[in-house]
């Protein structure tokens, strides 16, 4: 039709391939792991759709630029806004759920989760963008070019996943079973005082028979900065109660002398191995991370 411009077949191939790889990047990173989040179909759908949209934005950027449609490239700024909305949406959603959980996730943990969701949308965008650029610039056309583009996109995805992978409690500390002792109305774990809130006989019996505790010992003294952070301890407790359930009572306590952190609770499912495993796998919060090497660096020259 005169006056109308259509996409060339080669551009269409680039865009479709990049969208598929970008969306695949979001699917791969939307894993349901031991934290069981998100574990509901609607949550999956929301994140897959936003991943698809971000992949689309990344994939059309190059063809738009090459067709001298510079305004279309400003869509990338729209993407940034969209990703920020993803973070905000995730944050609001988790904050709304706070009152319904066994224990609070805490603001620090929610902030970390929301940022991760935002970052994973950038994965989709960047992977789609790089895939489309690769297909366009490689000297091979047709299927060979597309396969090379897919390979580069997947390699980039692998690197991004590796780079963004955070550390866990198990990387910086030893997690061991704590010995529970109830003396009158006081609870002790490995000789450390935890609470005196076991005032009734029923509470004492419950903790003696069904209580569980773990002791987290940092590998290095400076790891105490992470472990003793309130948000971090709250995240540990949240993951433990989410995995094991909570019948009654939950406590964490710090030992100021040796930096040990105790988590004690009465779970629904009494599984000590699962308790230790979930504490070990609890992520170190980004907002808490203080790399020792950076702390030591004399950046200001003083």
């Amino acid at each position: 039709m005169p006056g109308k411009e259509f996409l060339a077949a080669s551009d269409l191939n680039i865009i479709i391939t990049a969208i598929l790889i970008g969306t695949f990047a979001r699917i791969i990173t939307l894993k349901e792991d031991f934290r069981q989040y998100p574990s509901y179909p609607n949550g999956y759908l929301i994140h897959l759709i936003t991943g698809f949209v971000s992949a689309s934005l990344g994939s059309v950027a190059l063809p738009a630029l090459l067709s001298k449609n510079f305004i279309a490239v400003t869509f990338l700024s729209l993407a940034i806004q969209q990703f920020r909305d993803v973070r905000k949406m995730e944050k609001e959603s988790l904050m709304d759920l706070e009152e319904t959980e066994y224990t609070y996730r805490g603001k620090a943990y929610i902030d970390g989760i929301a940022k991760t969701f935002e970052a994973r949308n950038y994965f989709s965008l960047v992977v789609a963008l790089v895939t489309s650029i690769t297909i366009k610039i490689v000297p091979f056309k047709g299927w060979v070019g597309i396969i090379i583009g897919i390979a580069v996109g997947l390699l980039l995805l692998f690197l991004l996943v590796r780079i963004s992978k955070g550390k866990t409690i198990g990387d910086i500390a030893q997690v061991k079973t704590g010995k529970i002792e109830v003396k009158g109305s006081e609870l002790f774990v490995d000789g450390m005082f935890i609470t005196n809130q076991l005032g009734s006989d029923q509470a004492q019996k419950l903790f003696k028979e069904e209580g569980m505790a773990v002791v987290i010992t940092p590998n290095e003294n400076h790891f105490r900065i992470n472990l003793e952070n309130f948000g971090q301890r709250q995240a540990v407790l949240f993951e433990a109660t989410r995995t094991l359930g909570l019948k009654r009572y939950h406590f964490t306590r710090r030992d100021f002398e040796n930096g040990k952190v105790v988590v004690a609770l009465v779970p629904i499912k009494k599984d000590m191995d699962a308790f230790i495993e979930v504490v070990k796998k609890c992520p170190l919060l980004e907002s808490v991370k203080k790399p020792n090497s950076v702390m030591k660096t004399n950046l200001k020259g003083r």
Partner: peptide, 18 residues
Amino acid sequence: QKEMTADIAKALKAEIVR
């Protein structure tokens, strides 16, 4: 004393400290 404490704590969903 124990009975009174337990009854009130149950009704108010509260904790007991001895």
